[in-house]
Structure formats: C-alpha cells, structure tokens
C-alpha cells in the first residue's frame, strides 16, 4: 500500500522548468526568514564566544578565555554554579510535582465521566496565562501583609503557618517551583490523558482476567505504556527549565531575590548580556549561551536515547 502510494507521487521532472521556479518562490521566504533571524544569530553567538570584546567593539581572537572567565572570574564563577544548581532543583521539583499530580489527575479523569471537560479546562487554564502575569499575580497573593495566601491561612485558623513567602531565602526557590508547577501542570496532564485514551481497553481486561489488582494493572500494564510520554514530558520540562526567566523576573526581580536565592541560568544570561559592568559582556554572555546550548542539547539527546531504550526493554 505504502509502496503503491509512493509510486504515484509525481517526479520533479514532471513540471519541468516552471515547477523549479515555483519551488524557489515557495521556499525562499521561509528559508530567508528562518536563516537570517534564527540560524545566523545562533551561529554568530558561537563565533562571538571566541573573541574578546570591549563594549560593542570586537577585539582579537580569545580562544577559550571567555569560557575560562565563566569558571574563574568572580562574581560570574560563583553565579554560574549557583544558578545551575537552582536550575537542577527547579527541574527535579517541577518534574516530581508535574509527573505525580499530572499522572494522578489524568488517570482519575480518564475514569470519571462527570465534569471531565470542565476539569480539563480548569487545570489547563493557567497554562495559557503569561508567565509575567503569573509572577505578578502570585507576588500579590504571597505578599505577607496584603496577600491572599496568608489571609486564607489566617481565615482557617492556620495563621501560624503564614510566612514571608517570597522574602525568606530558604522558601523563595521552592515557592517559585510550586508557582511554576501550578502554571504548567495542565500540559503533562493532557499528554498523559491522550496516551491513556490510546491504550486499548482489552489490555486491562486481559490483565483483570488473569486476576491482577487495580494497582497491578496500573503498575504492570498502564504505566509501562506511558513511558514514551514520560520521556517527552521530562525533555520538554528540562528545556523549558532554561527558559524560566519571565516568572522569576516578575516574582523576584532581575536579580533573583532574595540575595540571588532564586537566580537561574536564563536570568543570569540576561544579566550577563545586558546588565553587566564588565566591558567584555558580549564575550562572557556568548560563552554562557554556548554552554547552555550544549547542556540543553546534550541532555535532551541523552534523555531521548535513555527513554527509547527503556521503551524497548519494556516491550
């Protein structure tokens, strides 16, 4: 069938000259736009990272010295590792909340009939809102005096739990992670729901016939079939994690307050490029960009491979 269809496709020679000309008309706008505004800048960033800069003037070839600066030149050397550590915590925290809650909600929704549509919409709605709006909204709600969160705690007699949520350096990062998870939870839930809907009911019935309990069915039948989705969710969360900048910017300012306790790589990259007293801001920020690029790409590919192998083993 596939073979037959393929044979039906027209040859490039079919249209001849006119066809080749229209091919260019079709392709060139997208090719130009994408190459000029996406590919070229990313390649330039790589190039920039190997030169030393004074303001916007490019100096000589600097080899790896910008990268060396990242690791050795105070304050950058300290900030990079701290921000990377926060990114790792952010990823792990978000993944834990999203996977456990998203999967639970998806499974429960899969079985429930009433209000399914409404609930799905409710869970997904925060996903639509700009991270900047989410950041400001939660910073209003978490305000120690006028905030709704502390007011609600006092209202139900848990006033002793009221906290300066954003001001405490130990709480600030976990709070940011929870806010981030609040926003994104609908996405893994929808992905899990779609995968659940794709699992044939016969599988569960067959396992039940063999005497499996609900938990065993989930653990041995359903969950293994969800591994590909888990892979997608973790790779997307990992990549998204490096784009977390808007939320922190709105919640804690461009410095990742209090005292850098919520600083992440995305924010640090922004500050290194555009708010950096060092004359070599371009060199340093480009080096940081290259490192982040390698990290994002490397881990995504490794994760992809890992999940593919896990899928194979489960089959």
């Amino acid at each position: 069938m596939v073979q037959a269809q393929r044979r039906l496709k027209p040859r490039a020679t079919g249209g001849g000259h006119a066809r080749r000309r229209s091919l260019l008309i079709f392709l060139i706008p997208a090719l130009a736009l994408y190459s000029v505004f996406i590919v070229y800048p990313l390649i330039s960033a790589l190039e920039y990272s190997f030169y030393s800069w004074t303001g916007t003037r490019r100096g000589g070839f600097a080899g790896l010295s910008n990268f060396h600066d990242l690791l050795t030149k105070y304050p950058l050397s300290e900030q990079v590792w701290r921000a990377l550590g926060h990114n790792c915590l952010f990823f792990v925290g978000t993944m834990l909340i999203q996977t456990i809650a998203g999967l639970t909600f998806a499974v429960l929704l899969h079985k429930s009939r009433r209000g399914k549509r409404f609930l799905q919409t409710a869970f997904t709605l925060p996903h639509l809102v700009s991270p900047i709006v989410v950041g400001y909204l939660w910073s209003l709600m978490l305000n120690p005096q006028f905030g709704a969160v502390n007011a609600a705690l006092r209202g139900v007699g848990l006033g002793s739990l009221a906290q300066p949520w954003r001001g405490d350096p130990h709480l600030a990062l976990p709070v940011a992670i929870v806010v981030n998870a609040w926003q994104w939870i609908g996405f893994p839930m929808l992905l899990f729901a779609a995968a659940l809907a794709g699992i044939p009911e016969e599988y569960e019935q067959a396992a039940r016939c063999d005497g499996a309990s609900s938990w065993q069915v989930f653990r041995r039948v359903t969950f293994p079939l969800l591994t590909p989705v888990l892979g997608i969710v973790s790779v997307l969360t990992f990549i998204g994690n490096f784009n977390v900048l808007d939320l922190i910017y709105a919640l804690q300012g461009s410095q990742g307050n209090p005292t850098f306790s919520t600083d992440v790589l995305g924010l640090l990259f922004y500050r290194t490029a555009f708010d950096n007293p060092d004359a070599n801001a371009i060199g340093q920020s480009s080096a940081l960009a290259v490192c982040m690029f390698v990290l994002i790409f490397g881990v995504s590919i490794a994760a992809n491979r890992f999940f593919r192998r896990m899928e194979d083993r489960l089959r």
């Binding site: 996406i38 070229y40 800048p41 990313l42 920039y48 990549i239 371009i282 690029f293 995504s300």
Partner: peptide
C-alpha cells in the same frame, strides 16, 4: 529549529 533555544541568540539578534 524545533529544538533550538532561540533566546540564546539574543545578543546577535
């Protein structure tokens, strides 16, 4: 391009 973190090219842009 689906996998490119385009924000990282902001300085050249």
């Amino acid at each position: 391009g689906l996998m490119l973190p385009i924000r990282l090219g902001i300085v050249p842009v």
